[in-house]
Nucleic acid binder design. Structure first.
Lengths: 210, 210
DNA sequence: CAATATTGGAAAGTGATACTCTCCAAAAGT
DNA sequence: ACTTTTGGAGAGTATCACTTTCCAATATTG
């Protein structure tokens, strides 16, 4: 198919496809003459993946680039793919207080979690705890435990549901569920908060949506 | 205190404070003469809140403005404050397929969740499910159930931990925990995924962080 | 065969966001 | 008297994610 057809099938403007090609997010089509290139199903899939990560996952194009690199890295073990996908999803350097980092490490140790010691998530978590401290609302330890147990449920379920057979599909499923599961979980959490709030405070009329 | 002292206490550059004042994110100080204004603890707290929402919560200044408006709205019931905070945290119009919206509504009905029928979270959730469909990895119903139960745990715990006494503090705690709890939960989820992945796939060496 | 349309490719332009810098005259400190 | 600081405003800057405009080389259509 030509670029116009690729645009039609994915609902992405031709100009944007050209931009993604320039940026190296989308591999070039098979060049047919000087002013023509042919695209195929793989381009349709890749383009849909990019749009899903950007629109629903809220990733920047820079992060998408990193995620795609992790997807395309053929040689790695599945466990490493997850680590690479996580690495691509996060800023690589976050600063956090040693106090919060210790609290995180202790928490992980208490529950016997086996995570990479240089995982950016440790620092990211500690950083969030620091921010809560700074605004004068430190995260209660029992609340943090609730978060951890809920996260464990979800993380276990995520990994259990990764397809076992085809490696390429498992890799894609890994980045998709990691990136798009987040918004799903956060939306459900807010809905659960609304439900819990309705029970705790009672509702005269529904909540006001401004 | 003068603006320089406010800057010192919050680690926010004077130019940025002036910018926030212009943008109406920070209320003006008490004007003392033509070239002087006095700031107090309330400005320090507000500024720290803004920075926490922006840096740790990842909110845009436009969303912060909405959240602060919800905080400052004195008249509302606590339940409405939560709704307003949620409203401010999300885009107000998200489109989703009727199929996914029905799936969401059914899910909420099955679990007896009482949420506002026009909550943007419904559409946001349905939109995320649509995105998963479009990339050819529809969200498995048992996995969605795991998400829902985990979200219920967290949402219940969040609301249970809101301070009961002072209303102003409860309002602030509501927006803080809603906005900053998200990153905490997502970081823990990724750590849980790493742990589950280590168990499922075994680890020869630790995951590679690129 | 002529007229029109489409393509790949590159460069420049756009609009939003979040600052950051420069300037100013009035006032405060020394 | 002189240096510093302040509030206020305007302009400038960097990044991001496109979008527009241009081109010459083809393809398609009549």
């Amino acid at each position: 198919m030509w670029i116009a057809e690729l645009s039609r099938q994915t609902d992405v403007p031709v100009a944007t496809i050209k931009y993604y090609l320039r940026e190296g997010l989308l591999p070039a089509g098979e060049s047919v003459g000087a002013t023509r290139a042919r695209y195929d199903e793989s381009h349709v899939r890749r383009l849909r993946l990019i749009r899903a990560l950007v629109e629903a996952g809220g990733l920047s194009l820079a992060r998408v680039r990193g995620v795609l690199a992790a997807v395309d890295e053929e040689s790695q073990q599945m466990h490493a793919v997850l680590g690479a996908a996580h690495g691509a999803l996060l800023p690589e350097s976050i600063e956090a207080s040693t106090g919060s980092l210790e609290r995180v490490d202790e928490l992980l140790a208490d529950h016997g979690w086996k995570v990479h010691e240089r995982s950016p998530d440790r620092a990211l978590l500690a950083n969030a705890l620091d921010a809560l401290d700074r605004v004068g609302h430190p995260l209660d330890s029992t609340l943090l435990d609730s978060y951890l147990m809920a996260a464990e449920q979800v993380g276990d379920a995520d990994v259990a549901h990764l397809p076992a057979g085809d490696r390429a599909q498992a890799v894609e499923a890994t980045v998709i569920i990691t990136a798009l599961g987040g918004p799903v979980l956060l939306a459900l959490r807010r809905l659960a908060q609304q439900n819990a709030s309705a029970r705790r405070y009672g509702v005269v009329r529904g909540p006001v949506c401004p």
